[in-house]
Design a protein around this nucleic acid. Structure first.
Lengths: 209, 209
DNA sequence: CGAGCCATGTAAACAGTTACATGATTCT
DNA sequence: AGAATCATGTAACTGTTTACATGGCTCG
């Protein structure tokens, strides 16, 4: 369902081929949803069959063609209906957290590596999100610009703010993840130092170590 | 894969039937993973076929039987291997956030309802997580007690701390979600008041309105 | 002319949800 | 006797991943 809506939302900004949509999903712009091309192409066909989008063959060079889809009025309707509905939250499935709960089965080094990777991943994600949020607020994002061109001036600020807000959520979460991983690293230090207390106390008696 | 490991981790605490595992997942204790019984029973059979768990028929009343599984040495091995591996983080798919990015398609009331529901859900989740975390630290959780009975005293603290740490992550995330939703509600106020500025200024000139 | 990009698919496998189904046990 | 709980499944469907596959276009 959400993939369907993500595609409609993309097409609300401008007409696109499946390939365009694919890049929005997995290259750079859209961290809010993603899907591989093997899911996108069939889904667009289904949306077309359902009349929510309209496909049109566009020539490309001499022999090749591509199919560009645009949102129909019925698709716009569907998008509105979906946004009006309250999405009931789903319980998460989180392999990282699950694994962390059983770190007693791992070596301290492995647990440390896991948490370091977790922190690093979310630090990098954080940087992307922050950059993207700034680009949105500065209206530097091409897809957003296309969207704004189809939006009356009085509503443009809201369009920008909502997108920035969504990224704000990703930022908040990424921050929480980084802090959690760092707390985990401190926990490992603590558990490890407690266990080697005796030897470390001896070492501490020799200043300059 | 994670379902498999979640089951092995449960069985590391004590032998269990599929029904027991189901309750750990969806009734109260385990917010870290969940699965319906339709997934659990076949998975346990597969684990048994793979030699990671051992099933034994246990009579129940006069005519009925149930199947109780316990972890084998090979299963314990698998669990250790899994915990040693760094889990590569997956990009999230988050329908709430996706929808929020397109709130311009919704009525202000619908957006507000969405965010209020989001805040409420995560406030409630937060309370559960905090309670669970306290119960873990106080060693009041039966499954944890069973696990600790099979753990040498010198390692018990680590077992408890890792579980509390995992819940700490859930708490951090739930807090971030609640704050995000509240920020969204403030954003809606702001966007709405800006748009009705003129009429509200007029209203403000008549004190006592 | 070859590398890299543009463009679109099929198919098998795996993970997860939902609907349908059955029957014993225990407690009131 | 009936309700709640214990206990275990099958089947259809939806969503996602991964592997395999093809071929034109553009630029150097």
């Amino acid at each position: 369902m959400s993939l369907r809506m993500a595609l409609l939302a993309l097409l609300a900004a401008r007409p696109m081929t499946g390939f365009d949509a694919m890049r929005q999903f997995d290259v750079s712009v859209d961290y809010l949803w993603h899907a591989p091309h093997t899911q996108i192409y069939p889904e667009l066909r289904k949306l077309e069959a359902a009349g929510l989008v309209e496909g049109e063959e566009v020539p490309r060079g001499e022999h090749a063609r591509k199919r560009r889809y645009s949102l129909t009025e019925s698709g716009r309707e569907q998008l509105r209906t979906w946004v009006e509905e309250v999405e009931e939250p789903r319980r998460e499935r989180d392999p990282q957290r699950l694994k962390a709960a059983y770190f007693e089965w791992a070596s301290p080094e492995a647990a440390r590596a896991q948490l370091a990777a977790h922190a690093q991943f979310h630090e990098e994600a954080l940087a992307s999100y922050e950059k993207q949020r700034e680009d949105i607020l500065a209206r530097r994002v091409p897809l957003l610009q296309a969207r704004l061109e189809r939006t009356p001036p009085s509503e443009q600020e809201a369009v920008v703010e909502f997108k920035a807000f969504a990224y704000g959520g990703l930022i908040a979460r990424a921050l929480a993840e980084v802090e959690w991983a760092q707390e985990g690293l401190r926990l490992l230090d603590r558990l490890h130092s407690e266990r080697s207390d005796r030897s470390e106390e001896e070492a501490a008696e020799r200043p300059g170590a």
